[in-house]
């Protein structure tokens, strides 16, 4: 090992390196924030709806934040893995989570996850909101929601869903309860395989956020929307709301995508959070962003600049729903 240590050049480099090591974080000052790329945790897989939406927004956001974004994907245990790893990341406003409030709050509520919304993690800014929808593949024999419900009174009708802890799943269970129809929910673990099951006819129908069938174009036929009114009649063949079609009185079921930070960031770096919120809102009204959303095939009507209060209110409402349907969703 003598040669190793005596190598003067190496020693010098090592010394310099050690000298730099602790000083780098100290250099970071708030005027420079963000002084590095923003790390974005996506608690689902690459190539999914969250990935699509996150890329559309960060492309334009970079203009306002003057920083690019780097993505990490943590699918697993319905998003639990992503949430828990996010909580372990640096809490200084350089790490954000791009969440899908609906399914993820339900997951946090139903699974044994040591994270409390509000106390540990805060949704600071919504980016989009979309209602849940029931739809079938283009070759399906079902033309209307009424037909589907009638058949489901005769036999259990199979419905592909992304996962059981999901607003769309709750919607189907609630619809079944209200009409006496039996829906057998089949969780495919992700929007893409869920959609594929409906298109290829493995299941009778599918329940997913509305953007999914819309981006599928002519391959999908929307039968009903869990909302008070159809926000995008042109792009859904004028599909009725579930309540109109089934004569029920179900609450609107939506899910919002939103950015979240660890709760401690709000306390320790409030000005950073403000900067994040402000730049996100600027992005959401930027014509480039609107064009990017439209280009991805997602209706621009879904863009929703809801603030922290609105996002947290949605989370609370979703948590309440989850508690109500707990038994059906956990198989207990």
């Amino acid at each position: 090992m003598k040669n190793f240590v005596r190598n003067a050049g190496f020693t010098a480099i090592a010394a310099m390196a050690l000298a730099t090591y602790p000083s780098v974080p100290a250099l970071a000052q708030d005027a420079d924030y963000p002084d590095s790329n923003i790390s974005i945790t996506i608690p689902t897989g690459e190539g999914g709806g969250a990935d699509r939406d996150a890329r559309a927004i960060t492309k334009v956001w970079a203009k306002y934040l003057e920083r690019n974004s780097e993505f990490s994907y943590y699918p697993g245990a319905a998003g639990q893995v992503g949430y828990e790893f996010f909580m372990k990341s640096k809490a200084d406003g350089t790490h954000l989570m791009f969440s899908n409030i609906g399914p993820e709050v339900i997951m946090l509520e139903l699974q044994d996850v040591p994270i409390t919304i509000g106390e540990d993690l805060v949704y600071i800014q919504k980016t989009s909101t979309e209602p849940m929808a029931i739809w079938v593949g283009a070759n399906s024999k079902f033309e209307t929601l009424q037909q589907l419900i009638e058949e489901a009174k005769e036999r259990p009708v199979t419905i592909s869903v992304s996962r059981l802890p999901h607003p769309a799943s709750i919607g189907m269970l609630a619809l079944g309860e209200a009409t006496g129809a039996e829906f057998n929910l089949i969780p495919y673990g992700g929007g893409n395989p869920t959609a594929m099951a409906a298109i290829t006819g493995e299941v009778d129908a599918s329940a997913l956020p509305l953007a999914n069938p819309i981006t599928l174009g002519p391959e999908a036929r929307v039968l009903g929307i869990f909302a008070d009114e159809n926000p995008v009649p042109d792009q859904t063949g004028n599909a009725p709301t579930v309540n109109e079609a089934a004569g029920t009185d179900l609450p609107a079921l939506t899910s919002s995508r939103a950015f979240a930070v660890q709760a401690s960031v709000l306390e320790e770096y409030p000005e950073r959070v403000e900067l994040l919120k402000k730049t996100i809102r600027e992005t959401l009204v930027d014509p480039d962003y609107v064009a990017a959303v439209a280009a991805a095939g997602v209706p621009v009507e879904f863009i929703d600049p809801g603030d922290q209060e609105a996002a947290m209110a949605e989370a609370a409402a979703t948590a309440e729903l989850a508690t109500k349907y707990r038994d059906l969703l956990t198989g207990e």
Binding site: I13, M16, A17, T20, Y21, V24, E70, S72
Partner: peptide
């Protein structure tokens, strides 16, 4: 995204 050590930080600097 490997963990950064003295060498990586030095090069970055």
């Amino acid at each position: 995204h490997f963990p950064k050590g003295p060498f990586e930080l030095l090069v970055e600097a």
